[in-house]
Design a binder for these strands. Structure first.
Length: 599
RNA sequence: GGGGGUGUAGCUCAACUGGUUAGAGCGCUGCCCUGUCACGGCAGAGGUUGCGGGUUCGAGUCCCGUCACUCCCGCCA
């Protein structure tokens, strides 16, 4: 039996044809004297009919004993379904295949979970789905995710090819550069005691490729980070990695906007408007309290520092006197917040080191609040005007250092948006995609505990040209030529224009980041050397391909768009990895395992 | 490393304040059924309540420990 069509192919035009379908028994409806079997393959499903008047009794018996997921081949003739029995839910619903022959290609035992009912299957414990991933992936929803991922990857390659990019593979066995994320180490057998590291990203290689004159590079690159997992973070993941020579930031924006336009059109048939808005890091924090804002809804932060700098309410005025700010947010319609919800918000504030959370509930034309008695009339008037306070509003305040105050209210903004959405008071449209570029990040951030500066992005990011003189004078004021691409509150990717002058790079390593020259030489010496021999100006970006696919597949977890993902503890429940190594393997590597507490 | 949630039949869930023989739907087994498509009908089987310990006359339920999954914080240059 050779397959003639797939299971989502037959249409009324095929009526009368003799066909062979191969696939899995999706569902069986045995009416006693007549049996319907839906045969399913990765493309879809087709109804076959077993009518005893048209087949041998053995074949009919065989059909009546089929279990779900048995692999079968059905030979038969396509015919129009009788009137009133069409099934508009499936694309092959106008026809059916009258079976003449049935071959059982393989049997299937009773399944650990149902896969033919999307309602039930989507609720199955993820542990079980991961253990039997091959069954989970047969579910049409998951098969569709895999297919869409393949389609988007292909479109990405076509797009970059059309734009004169080369896809270059970079090594998986890289060198350990213990800056940033923790790496997976790989012991070397040929050099016992030495280790490779799996790349956190191909960052250094792609810059070297620019020195090599590749000019336009891209790669669907596997990256590895040995950090704790989240719904949107796996220890191995895929990036759309890009690097270009002789460009500035605008060129990157343009090429990525084009890519995302193409992807959204291909995957969702949605036209997204370009160019994307640009938002300075500072403005993102001031307005939304986060550097990856979801701009599909308002509830923006308002600055009240000036209004409260002389307030009788000392918590506010003292904060301002210490160089801090007073920020407020009006959560429209949430005056009804419960004590528990206020408590949760207060805990958010405390997690940032704040002492508490000041609020005003506007109910029955009254401002209910423990602090409003300290406010004078002009302060009240200012609040009313700037926050446009109305009946039913909930006003929340944060008085702290600028960044902390912004971040507290940014977190609360998102928390409250969820509540309002659940109450039907706020519409956050699922099918709207608010892309934006966040730009003008500070190049450097200060680590109080370590008492030193570190790169906000990574140490290869170029400072904004005009700010280079500030590097030694006022590091915090130096803006980096860094950009993040954000959609609906998700950080989809980021990149920068890189440093291509050896002396600037050396200055950053040694003078600013205070990496000892020997260490810088050991870790990055080959880059500094490469920059001696004519490194072109260059820059690039990397997009999280799994996150991108999760958005396109409308799922909250990237596990749903990765064929074989790991659990939150980094294990693979299907293969039971990781697992102990054989003593011989350890001997070859000259490794010894120290007994832990379980021994 | 820390905090929250979950764990009861193959699957999804229920079981009041600790109290009879731990229930339901789906699935499974058998029988009936010629236009179903989540087919329908009748009957039946199926339980170490994650695991270990404790309190109690009595524990799915309370306490301690532990394991797994999950969400979040830290972490993710």
């Amino acid at each position: 039996m050779k397959r003639t069509h797939h299971c989502n192919e037959l249409r009324p035009e095929n009526i009368g044809q003799e066909v062979v379908l191969l696939g899995w028994t999706h569902s069986r409806r045995d009416l006693g004297g007549l049996i319907f079997i839906d045969i399913r393959d990765r493309e879809g499903r087709t109804q076959t009919v077993f009518d005893p008047s048209q087949l041998s009794s053995e074949t009919f018996e065989k059909a009546s004993s089929l279990r779900p997921e048995t692999v079968i081949g059905v030979k038969g003739t396509v015919r129009q379904r009788p009137e009133e029995t069409e099934n508009p839910k499936i694309k092959t619903g106008n026809i059916e295949v009258v079976a003449e022959n049935l071959r059982i290609l393989n049997t299937a035992e009773v399944l650990p979970f149902i896969i033919d009912d999307p309602e039930v299957a989507s609720k199955v414990n993820e542990e079980l789905r991961l253990q039997y991933r091959y069954l989970d992936l047969r579910r049409p929803e998951m098969a569709r995710n895999l297919q869409l991922r393949s389609k988007v990857a292909l479109e990405t390659r076509k797009y970059f090819d059309e734009n004169a990019f080369l896809e270059v593979e970079t090594p998986m066995l890289f060198k350990s550069t213990p800056e940033g994320a923790r790496e997976f180490l790989v012991p070397s057998r040929l050099a016992p005691g030495s280790f490779y590291a799996l790349p956190q990203s191909p960052q250094q290689f792609k810059q070297i490729l620019m020195v090599a004159g590749v000019e336009r590079y891209y790669q669907l690159a596997k990256c590895f980070r040995d950090e704790d997992l989240r719904a949107d973070r796996q220890p191995e993941f895929t990036q759309i990695d890009v690097e270009m020579s002789f460009i500035d930031r605008e060129d990157i924006y343009q090429i990525i906007e084009g890519l995302l336009r193409r992807i959204w059109k291909t995957a969702l048939d949605v036209d997204i408007p370009t160019p994307f808005p640009r938002l300075a890091y500072k403005d993102a924090l001031n307005r939304f309290g986060i550097d990856k804002p979801d701009t599909r809804f308002g509830l923006e932060l308002v600055d009240m520092t000036d209004e409260f700098k002389d307030s009788r309410f000392k918590v506010f005025s003292n904060t301002v006197a210490d160089g801090g700010v007073v920020k407020a947010i009006n959560i429209k319609g949430l005056a009804c917040a419960t004590q528990g919800q206020i408590e949760t918000m207060t805990n958010h504030a405390r997690s940032f080191g704040a002492k508490g959370l000041a609020y005003i509930k506007v109910e029955n034309n009254e401002w209910k609040s423990p602090i409003v008695k300290f406010f004078n009339n002009s302060e009240k008037e200012a609040l009313k005007n700037k926050l446009q306070i109305e009946e039913g509003d909930l006003i929340l305040f944060a008085a702290d250092k600028w960044l902390t105050a912004c971040e507290i209210l940014g977190k609360i903004r998102l928390y409250c948006a969820d509540i309002l959405q659940a109450q039907g008071k706020l519409d956050v449209p699922e099918d709207q995609y608010n892309f934006l570029w966040v730009v003008d990040f500070p190049l450097l951030s200060f680590d109080k505990e370590m008492n030193r500066w570190y790169s906000s992005h990574h140490p290869f990011t170029a400072p904004v040209e005009d700010d280079i003189p500030l590097l030694s004078k006022d590091p915090k004021a130096v803006r980096g030529q860094h950009y993040d691409i954000v959609v609906n509150g998700v950080e989809l990717g980021g990149g920068s224009i890189r440093i291509h002058q050896r002396d600037v790079q050396k200055l950053i390593f040694e003078e600013i980041l205070k990496i000892p020259p020997e260490t810088a030489e050991a870790r990055f010496g080959y880059m500094l050397e490469a920059f001696k021999f004519g490194a072109p100006p260059h820059g690039g970006i990397a997009l999280g391909f799994d996150r991108l696919m999760a958005i396109l597949c409308k799922t909250p977890s990237i596990r749903d768009v990765i064929a074989f993902p790991k659990t939150a503890k980094g294990t693979d429940l299907m293969t039971n990895s990781p697992a102990p190594a054989e003593p011989k393997q350890l001997r070859d590597l000259r490794l010894e395992i120290k007994k832990g507490k379980e021994q």
